[in-house]
């Protein structure tokens, strides 16, 4: 005796009918389309934790460039990274030779009072001579391109900063959960 697979009698009573299966396939196709459509928006999430002149560059360069690639970019600034968004302090970010053996000043000399000022001036001169974009220029450009800069509320309070100290357009009143949510949604996540 033979019985073909599509013989209705072969199915147990609780098996779905063809019509039910067709409906289910339609539902799945719609869900797939929705999921892939939503996925079209590429996202990048950066956590910026450093506020020295050299370490302020990477998050800003990557954020503005990713925006040029069409990414929706969020940069969450915490601890010293807040200084990058601080309107006054961002124009006066410092660079130290201490602990950086690649700098041309020996640690023993670099630790002397006023030496950070000297190494910072050296770097600022190189930036100017090389026509490298300034921190302020990169922030302005990034904001123009729709990058969302977030200032961590806990560290704003810790550092005794005021919400008005930051550039216009900077989001305040956000914490770690907001950063995690952004990272969970993002295609690229970076801690700098």
């Amino acid at each position: 005796m033979t019985m073909s697979a599509d013989t209705p009698d072969a199915s147990p009573d609780d098996a779905p009918s063809r019509a039910e299966l067709a409906t289910r396939v339609d539902e799945l196709e719609n869900a797939l389309e929705e999921a892939t459509t939503e996925d079209d928006g590429k996202k990048m999430s950066i956590i910026a934790t450093k506020g020295t002149l050299d370490m302020a560059y990477p998050p800003l360069i990557l954020a503005s460039t990713a925006a040029a690639f069409g990414y929706e970019v969020t940069v969450f600034h915490t601890f010293w990274g807040l200084d990058i968004l601080h309107e006054e302090r961002s124009k006066n970010l410092q660079l130290s030779s201490v602990g950086n053996p690649n700098m041309p000043v020996p640690n023993a000399i670099a630790a002397l009072p006023g030496m950070d000022r000297v190494t910072t001036k050296m770097m600022e001169k190189k930036i100017e001579d090389n026509d490298t974009a300034t921190i302020e220029e990169l922030i302005d450009t990034s904001l123009e391109m729709g990058v969302e800069f977030q200032a961590c509320q806990m560290t704003i309070d810790l550092m005794d900063y005021d919400e008005d100290d930051f550039y216009d357009g900077v989001t305040t009143g956000v914490g770690a959960a907001t950063a995690i949510q952004d990272m969970a949604d993002a295609d690229i996540q970076l801690l700098i």
Partner: peptide, 14 residues
């Protein structure tokens, strides 16, 4: 001309 990374790409996009 004269500008460096990331400006050529960023300004091209703009």
């Amino acid at each position: 001309k004269g500008e460096n990374c990331p400006m050529p790409v960023v300004k091209t996009k703009q």
